[in-house]
Computed example of a mutant assay.
Amino acid sequence: MVGLNRRSALGLALAAGLAFCSLAQAQEFPSQTITLVVPFAAGGSTDLVARVIAEKMSGELGQNVIVENVGGAGGNLGADRVARAEPDGYTILMGTVATHALNPLILKTKPYDPVTDFTPVSLLVLVPNVLAVNPQLPVNTVQELIDLLKSKPGEYSYASSGNGTPLHLSGELFKSMTGVDMQHVPYKGSGPALTDVLANQVPIIFDNLPSSSGHMKSGTLKALGVTTVERAASFPDVPTIAETVPGYETYSWNALFAPKDTPPDVVAKLNAAANKALTDETVKARMKDFSATIVGSTPEELGAHVKAELAKWEPIVKAANVSLD
Rank of each mutant, 00 (worst) to 15 (best):
G3E: 08
K288C: 03
L256A: 03
F290Y: 14
Q201D: 14
A193R: 07
L209Q: 11
E172N: 06
S211R: 07
A242I: 04
L14C: 15
F29R: 00
N254G: 15
L137Y: 05
A15S: 13
R231H: 04
T228H: 07
I34C: 01
T240M: 03
L148Q: 08
D147H: 08
T220N: 09
A42G: 14
T91P: 04
S297T: 12
F20L: 13
L278G: 05
P138D: 04
L124C: 04
G78E: 07
A13T: 15
T244Y: 10
G95F: 06
A277Q: 08
I316P: 01
N275H: 04
S170W: 06
A232H: 03
D117V: 09
T240I: 03
L14M: 15
V130M: 04
M94F: 07
L107Q: 12
P120R: 05
H305T: 14
L224M: 10
P246L: 09
G44N: 14
L198W: 09
N64A: 15
A319N: 14
Q25P: 00
H305M: 15
Y112K: 02
T228E: 10
V97P: 06
K222W: 04
P120A: 06
N321F: 09
P192F: 12
V121N: 01
P264K: 11
D207A: 15
T227M: 10
S58Y: 02
P192Y: 09
Y251K: 13
I204D: 02
Q201I: 09
G89R: 00
S190K: 06
Q136K: 09
M1H: 12
P87K: 04
I106R: 05
P111M: 07
L105K: 05
G71H: 13
